[in-house]
Amino acid sequence: MTTATASRADEGLNQTFDTVATLQDQFVQMADGFVRALPGFAIALGILILTWIAARIAVRVTNRVLDRTDLRPGLENLVKTLVKLAIWIGGLMIAAVVVMPGLTPASLIAGLGIGAVAIGFAFQDIFENFLAGVLIMLRKKMRIGDIIECEGIAGKVEHITLRETYVRKLSGEVTLVPNSMLFKNPVEILTDETQRRHEVIAGVSYDTDLDHAAKVIRAAVQGVETVDADKGIDVFAVEFNASSVDFKVRWWAGSKPRDMWESKDKVIRAIKSALDDAGIEIPFPYVTHTFKEAIPLGSGDKN
């Protein structure tokens, strides 16, 4: 082995030793820093536990205060959520400052602002639903318990969170609807009032006295117990149909879907019975055939 080769080998060995020594020093420094940070982590953990306890106590106190008010259930959920969120944000900020003493509240808030922009782009849909949930809870319409229809989804509003709304279908299934969908699309609230107007079509034959038929139908509807006669009953002749003159009958009754079906059932039964008693025909559809030439009615030629 030449002197130059031996020298290069020694240099390589020395570099290896230097690298190992550097790694050892860094590991020792990291371990030392971790040990020194343990008290801070313990204090931060204690702060988080206290934050959890404080949040639970705050929610209970908020519940007691809200029970004395007339706030809507959705708005109550929003207040409780905001109280819990504010306490947790404060606790997390204090814990972060304890773990990293060089972190000041000002720098933490600035970092949160920059991070919020990045997170906002990454989780745009989530924040959109969050904001929509806040706005839905703030507005007066669409309360918990209402029957709604939106984009083909119909059912009872059971629960409203900051991200989604639980809609229980009339057949029993529950649908989790994103709040942005309910906020950006038209929502039909069927139970906004205790009553709404319902209607059916009733047909009578062409040889019927329409004024008499209208009186019979009106009297029949007025006699139904589920109908609010004080709000008026409408009986309009609306169409010359293929085999009948059709009346549109409108009345006011309960707004819930079951109220509607029960009321329609009783109204249709009452109209049918009243027309039968008055001798007014409810015709079946029939077809009239017209021929250019007369059709012989005889038996024809015999062979």
Rank of each mutant, 00 (worst) to 15 (best):
Ala253Leu: 02
Val134Met: 09
Leu85Thr: 15
Gly90Pro: 04
Lys184Ser: 11
Arg269His: 07
Pro257Thr: 04
Val187Cys: 00
Thr62Val: 08
Arg197Lys: 13
Leu138His: 05
Lys80Cys: 05
Asp67Ser: 09
Ile280Arg: 01
Ile144Tyr: 04
Gly152Met: 01
Met181Arg: 14
Phe41Glu: 04
Ile53Ala: 13
Trp88Met: 14
Phe247Ile: 00
Arg197Phe: 07
Gly102Cys: 04
Phe41Ser: 05
Lys248Thr: 09
Ile280Pro: 04
Lys272Cys: 03
Leu112Trp: 11
Arg68Phe: 05
Asp277Ile: 09
Lys141Cys: 05
Gly223Val: 00
Val224Ile: 02
Trp261Pro: 03
Gly40Tyr: 06
Phe130His: 07
Ser107Leu: 11
Glu128Phe: 06
Arg139Thr: 02
Ile144Thr: 06
Gly133Ala: 02
Thr208His: 01
Val61Pro: 03
Phe236Ala: 10
Gly155Cys: 04
Ile201Arg: 10
Glu11Tyr: 13
Ala202Ile: 07
Val79Ala: 04
Asn77Arg: 09
Ala118Ser: 08
Val200Asp: 10
Gly279Pro: 01
Gly102Asn: 07
Val235Gln: 05
Ala214Gly: 11
Thr104Ser: 14
Lys272Glu: 10
Met181Ala: 11
Gly254Ala: 06
Arg218Gly: 10
Leu108Pro: 01
Asn303Arg: 14
Trp252Asp: 05
Asp211Thr: 14
Phe130Trp: 11
Ile87Ala: 09
Ala237Lys: 08
Ile47Thr: 06
Leu82Thr: 13
Trp252Thr: 10
Val83Asp: 00
Ala9Lys: 13
Ile109Asn: 08
His289Asn: 08
Asp67Met: 01
Ile160Cys: 04
Met142Cys: 06
Leu162Tyr: 07
Glu76Lys: 15
Gly232Arg: 01
Arg218Ala: 11
Thr175Ser: 15
Phe240Thr: 15
Asp32Pro: 01
Ala116Arg: 03
Phe17His: 12
Ala9Phe: 13
Asp207Ile: 00
Leu162Lys: 03
Arg64Gln: 08
Ala42Phe: 10
Val35Phe: 11
Gln222Phe: 07
Ala21Gly: 12
Leu131Cys: 08
Thr288Gln: 11
Phe236Asp: 11
Pro101Trp: 01
Tyr166Trp: 12
Arg56Asp: 14
Leu48Glu: 10
Asp207Phe: 03
Arg250Trp: 06
Arg269Trp: 00
Leu210Asp: 07
Ala42Tyr: 07
Asn185Thr: 06
Ala6Thr: 10
Asp25Cys: 00
Ile89Trp: 13
Glu128Ala: 11
Val177Trp: 01
Thr175Gln: 15
Asp18Ser: 15
Ile114Asp: 00
Gly279His: 02
Gly279Lys: 06
Val238Tyr: 04
Gly172Ser: 03
Thr16Cys: 13
Met181Lys: 13
Thr51Pro: 03
Ala220Met: 01
Arg139Leu: 00
Tyr286Asn: 09
